[in-house]
Amino acid sequence: MRMSPKPVQTFRDDFSYSNSPGAIARFPFPFPDDEYRYSVNIEPHTTPGPEGSVYEFLLDIDEHYLSEMAERDIVLKENPQRCLAMPHMDLACWDMIERCMQSLAADYPQHFSLSTEGDQWTWENRLLNIKDSFTFGDSSTLPLPPMEYMGRQLQGDFALLDQRDGDLFLDAGIVTCPADWSLAFDAGMSFSEWHGPVPLAHEMGVFERALKYLTAIPVGRPVRRLNWTLTVNARMDTSPETYPNWGTDRASLTADNVGEKVHLRVELQVLDRMPRSNALMFSIRTFLISFDDLVTNPDWARRMHRVLKTLPPELVEYKGLGRYHDLAVEWLSQYDPAN
């Protein structure tokens, strides 16, 4: 089913975030097998995908739109450096504005519209009561820097990767809901550098192969992959910056609150070539589902148990699950008859 934005819920303090039955049904459950292993799991993001699914359009807008935009505003007000764009990325930012505005207006005409006359553009976002006219390509005609202007109207984190010397460089982005990585620290890094802390995968040649694939993506042929971790509480901002605020969440778990507090966090990552700058737009759309909601699907419940039970220790450590991995496996085992 298609999702309409609902009133603002929170991803912090009282964590009022919840998924409707429709949102649970379309959740992108990421495991094709009972055992999770690294792979270069990249596939074409051909649109339109199945109607109502998270793969239907280039950019997914769902019932959490207003909540996520409110959360992003809180994060950026607290720390404006969660959004940055190096000066040479201005053209790529405008590529991103064009691609996102055109996609949103075409895919969600009830919420967004775009009219253009030469380089005079008018953009309307009825969900956020925004209506702006500006000169395309002229950043001084926007009320905010282009990355922040567009990023504040999109669910998920965005990065723009500059392609040079056969490598990709993290030179712009808006990152307010990351799975434990810092844009301010990683800015300017090459592909293998920003994946530096990931265990095992370098030795398997995963990044080398992925980089070859990604640098060859042509305009108009986006690709996607899913990534996952677990998050305690429905917390979007699990950044290193704010880790002192959420580190203790992990110690708050007991056998009685695992189902309510532990969330499967899935990232739908899409990479899309920008036509003028040759940059790649990297969107990281995050979906959260509580274990209580996840186990309403018996197939997911059984598989989640098996994936966690067989997860290599290096990945348990890297994903920050050490303190509650056993507890989560034990709780899920009640949904797996084979145990």
Binding site: F185, D186, G188, Y243, G247
Partner: peptide, 14 residues
């Protein structure tokens, strides 16, 4: 040991 060339620095986390 995670190093950023732009900062010439290693990252510190609580």
């Amino acid at each position: 040991d995670h190093f950023a060339r732009l900062h010439g620095a290693y990252v510190g986390v609580q």
